[in-house]
Every structure is written in C-alpha cells, then in structure tokens.
Amino acid sequence: MTAKISFTLNGKPWTGNVHPLKRLLDTLREDAGLTGTKEGCGEGECGACTVFLDGQVVMSCMVPTCQAEGKKVTTIEGLVSDGDLHPMQDCFIQEGGAQCGICTPGMIMAAVAYANDPDSAEDMREALAGNLCRCTGYTRIYESVKKAMEKMSVSEIR
C-alpha cells in the first residue's frame, strides 16, 4: 500500500509513492536517493539520522513519511549551497570534528540547529546530548561548533 506524498526536500519539491508509515529515514535514503542521513540504532537514541522537519530537529528513523507531507525537510545534503560548504561543515573539517564520519551528518544537523538558535539549549553539551559519537570523545566536535558559531555570527546565518 503506497500513497503519494509530497514535501519540500532541501528547497525543492519532492513527490513519491511510498507507504505512509515508511520511516522518513528510508524514504530519504531509498526513494530520494539521499544517503547522507545514516541509521545507527533505529530507535531514536543515536541521532545519526537527524534531519530538520520545518526547521525542527527530528530523528528521521522515528518519523513516518506521512508526517512530512507538505512540510520542509532539510538533510545534510541541503546544507551545501552552490557548492559552498556550510560554515559548520567547513569547521568540522578544519577542527577534526569528523573521524569515522558515520555520526557526522546527524551531528552537524544538531549543531547547526543549536548554532541557529543558541537559546534552544542550556549549552552545547545539552544541545548535542542526543547525538552519539564513539570516535571523538566530543572534544573536537565542541571545537568545531565553537569555531563555526564564531564564523556564523559574523557571516549570514542560513
């Protein structure tokens, strides 16, 4: 049983025939071909599948695709504009915030959400506590986010 579901994906309209209860994660990866969003646990604990739904951070493994109907979905692929990396991506490269890289897309999405609205969490630790990383011990991730937030405060936040 499939249904026609439409939403805005990284700024462009997207329509597909998918089961309404298919996980948004699978729709993004299998139907939209965007494999930057990762699955680490399938139960909303690890944050590797973090995307924005109408600007809000969600775990796409916990969201049925029908909930995205008519909304705006942003994935890691949507952070690049005209080939330019988002400052957060750039700082993860410069500061060593990515090691094995599997948590990185989700971590960057959570970090961008925090950088865009620092009042959304008490501090960086709380903001990123839903995203597990097994490689870094988080230290280089903090350095990356701090640097990006400095850059973003002087450039246009997008």
Binding site: G36, T75, I76, F92, I93, A98, G101
Partner: peptide
C-alpha cells in the same frame, strides 16, 4: 602539521559511501 583529513569533505557533506549507501 594539521592538514584537513583526506576524506573529511565527503564525510561532512554526506557523500561518503558506506556499505549501506
């Protein structure tokens, strides 16, 4: 020195291909 990691651009943009990708 601290040059950027060889594979980090692919990793931060979601382009790196893991087996399930």
């Amino acid at each position: 020195k601290n040059p950027p990691r060889k594979e980090s651009r692919e990793k931060v943009t979601g382009k790196a291909k893991y087996i399930d990708d």
